[in-house]
Deep mutational scan, measured.
Amino acid sequence: GQTTVQVRVPYRVVGLVVGPKGATIKRIQQQTHTYIVTPSRDKEPVFEVTGMPENVDRAREEIEMHI
């Protein structure tokens, strides 16, 4: 079944991970077949990644490449 993982990043890289108009996070979602919730600016900088476990792992690696 599907799993949801929280990926915490430093505040300063949230914009990098999301990309211009969300382009980068969309690409990560498409490439890894996951659904990613982006943290809002006034909340903790935690991305929520949902999908099959192996896909979630890949998405987390993609996010962490920006750190």
Rank of each mutant, 00 (worst) to 15 (best):
D42L: 10
K21V: 04
K21W: 07
G22M: 10
P53R: 11
I63C: 03
E54Q: 09
P39M: 07
F47A: 01
E48V: 09
K43P: 06
L16N: 09
R27G: 05
T24W: 06
T4D: 04
T4F: 01
E61R: 15
V49S: 01
E54K: 06
Y11R: 15
V17T: 06
T50R: 07
V46K: 09
Q2D: 11
I67P: 02
V7W: 00
E64N: 10
V14R: 08
E54V: 07
G15S: 12
R58M: 08
P20N: 14
R12H: 11
E61M: 11
M65C: 10
I28C: 01
E62T: 06
A23T: 13
R27V: 05
V9T: 01
A23M: 13
I25M: 05
V7E: 08
V7K: 07
T4I: 05
T38P: 13
P20C: 07
V18P: 02
I36Q: 02
F47T: 06
M52F: 11
V46L: 09
Q30V: 06
A59M: 09
Y11Q: 15
Y11D: 13
M52C: 11
V37T: 15
P20G: 03
E54T: 10
T24V: 06
T32L: 03
A59T: 00
E64T: 02
Q30K: 13
P53Q: 11
P10H: 01
I67M: 04
P39F: 10
P20H: 12
R27Y: 06
P53F: 07
V13I: 08
V13F: 14
E48G: 03
G19R: 03
P45Q: 07
V13R: 10
D42P: 00
D57T: 14
T4R: 08
D42M: 12
Q2H: 14
S40E: 13
K21F: 14
T50K: 06
R8N: 00
E54L: 09
I25K: 02
G51H: 02
T32V: 04
I25P: 04
V17K: 06
K43A: 14
I25S: 03
R27N: 05
V18C: 10
T32H: 07
G51K: 07
Y35G: 06
R27W: 10
K43Q: 13
Q30W: 06
V14H: 03
D42G: 14
Q29V: 03
K21R: 11
K26L: 04
V17P: 02
G15C: 05
E48D: 06
I28D: 03
P45V: 00
E44K: 03
P53S: 10
V49I: 15
E61G: 09
T24Y: 05
E48W: 12
V7F: 12
K43E: 11
N55G: 10
V37D: 08
V18L: 11
Q31F: 07
D42F: 11
R58N: 08
V17C: 05
P39R: 10
T34N: 02
T50D: 01
D57C: 12
V17S: 01
R27P: 01
A59G: 05
K26Q: 09
P20K: 13
T3F: 07
V56N: 00
G22L: 05
E48I: 14
P10W: 01
G15K: 10
G22D: 06
V7Y: 03
I25E: 02
A23G: 07
P10E: 00
L16S: 14
E44V: 07
T3K: 07
T4H: 08
V18S: 06
V7M: 07
Q30N: 07
R27K: 15
I67T: 13
E44P: 08
V5Q: 09
Q31D: 14
T3V: 14
M65H: 15
R58A: 10
V18T: 10
I67L: 09
P10V: 03
V37I: 12
V49E: 07
E62M: 15
I36H: 06
V13N: 11
P39T: 08
K21L: 11
T50S: 10
D57R: 14
Q29F: 01
Y35M: 13
I36Y: 03
E44G: 07
P45L: 07
T38N: 09
V46R: 05
D57G: 11
I25D: 02
A23E: 12
A59L: 01
V56P: 05
Q29I: 03
E54D: 12
P39I: 05
E62L: 15
P53T: 08
V14E: 06
R60K: 13
H66L: 15
T32G: 03
T50V: 03
M65G: 13
R58P: 00
R12C: 08
T38I: 11
L16E: 12
D42C: 08
H66M: 12
E48C: 09
R60I: 13
E61W: 09
V37W: 01
T34L: 03
H33F: 07
R41F: 09
R8K: 14
P53Y: 00
Q29A: 14
H33A: 11
D42T: 10
V37K: 15
G15V: 00
Q2G: 08
Q30S: 07
G15I: 01
P20E: 12
G15N: 10
R41D: 14
P20F: 07
S40Y: 12
T38K: 09
T34R: 04
G19Q: 05
V46Q: 05
M52Q: 13
R8T: 11
T32Q: 04
A59E: 00
V46M: 09
Q31Y: 05
T3L: 11
P45T: 07
I25A: 01
Q30L: 06
E48H: 11
V17I: 14
T4A: 06
I63V: 06
T24C: 05
G19D: 03
V14W: 09
V18R: 06
T4N: 01
P45W: 01
V46Y: 12
K43L: 05
I63W: 02
T50F: 05
Q2L: 14
R41H: 12
V9W: 02
Q30C: 02
F47L: 04
P53C: 06
A59Y: 00
G22I: 00
V14G: 03
Q31T: 10
D42K: 12
R8Q: 04
K43T: 13
R41N: 13
I36N: 11
G19I: 00
Y11N: 13
R41W: 10
K26H: 04
V46A: 04
E48F: 13
I67W: 15
I63K: 11
Q29M: 15
R8V: 04
H66S: 09
Y35C: 12
R27C: 01
P53V: 03
K43F: 08
P45I: 05
P53A: 12
R41I: 11
E61H: 14
T34E: 06
T32W: 00
E61D: 13
D57F: 11
L16Y: 10
I63L: 08
K26R: 12
M65S: 15
G1D: 12
V18A: 08
G19E: 01
P45E: 08
D57W: 10
S40V: 10
G22K: 08
Q6N: 04
P39V: 07
T50W: 06
K26T: 05
R41M: 11
